Simulated scan of single mutants.
Amino acid sequence: MNRPTSSSAPRAAPTSREAIGPGRWGAHPVLSVLLAAVWLLLQESLAPAHILAAAVLGLVVPRLVHGFLGPATRLHKPVVALRFVFIVLWDIVVSNFIVARIVLSPSSDPRPAWVRVPLKLQQPGAITLLATIITTTPGTVSCIVDDERHEILVHALDCADPQALAEQIKQRYEQPLMEIFG
């Protein structure tokens, strides 16, 4: 009696989850698009060779580092994400002028402060993004992400009211991130 071997047994088509699971091509589409876009921005060109290189980087790099990335993060509200990008860019520009004024003005008297920002965010990727946004905005640095206390310790160059700064970070950055990442 011939028994079917595993090689002769019909194989079911992979589900969409299996086709784009961890370690598969296209498992991190947002990262792929960002890598390709950054490559094109750095090249300052839309020449076919640069577009091809961007596509290859966007596909290969996430595939190579998939073990370090964990599961892909899904954006639940892309329109909110786009608006959020402009808010962060605006805050970075405004903060640059404020820090320049503080640094260049001989009469400035900055009041540095340590600010504890309690977190409602649960997703590690969203928390990392929040810490990155805080650090990227001139005048503030996220120093510690405390998983036990579920807060971020932020150092501010000039802060008269630490509680107000914590609330501003929560409303301006954490709330949109909670909407975006669900």
Rank of each mutant, 00 (worst) to 15 (best):
P4M: 08
P4G: 03
P4F: 07
S7H: 04
S8E: 12
A9C: 07
P10V: 13
P10Q: 05
A12Y: 08
A12P: 13
A12D: 15
A13M: 12
A13H: 10
T15V: 11
S16V: 14
R17K: 13
R17Q: 15
E18R: 02
E18A: 12
E18P: 09
A19K: 07
A19N: 05
I20M: 09
P22S: 10
P22L: 14
R24S: 15
W25R: 05
A27N: 08
H28T: 10
P29L: 08
V30Q: 02
L31D: 05
A37S: 05
L40I: 06
L40D: 02
Q43W: 03
S45E: 06
A47I: 12
P48M: 04
I51G: 00
L52T: 09
A53E: 13
A53C: 04
A54M: 01
A55D: 01
A55R: 00
L57W: 03
L59K: 00
V60K: 03
V61N: 04
V61H: 03
R63I: 10
L64S: 06
V65D: 06
V65C: 06
V65I: 15
V65W: 02
H66N: 09
F68Q: 13
F68V: 15
L69C: 08
G70K: 04
G70R: 02
A72G: 09
H76A: 13
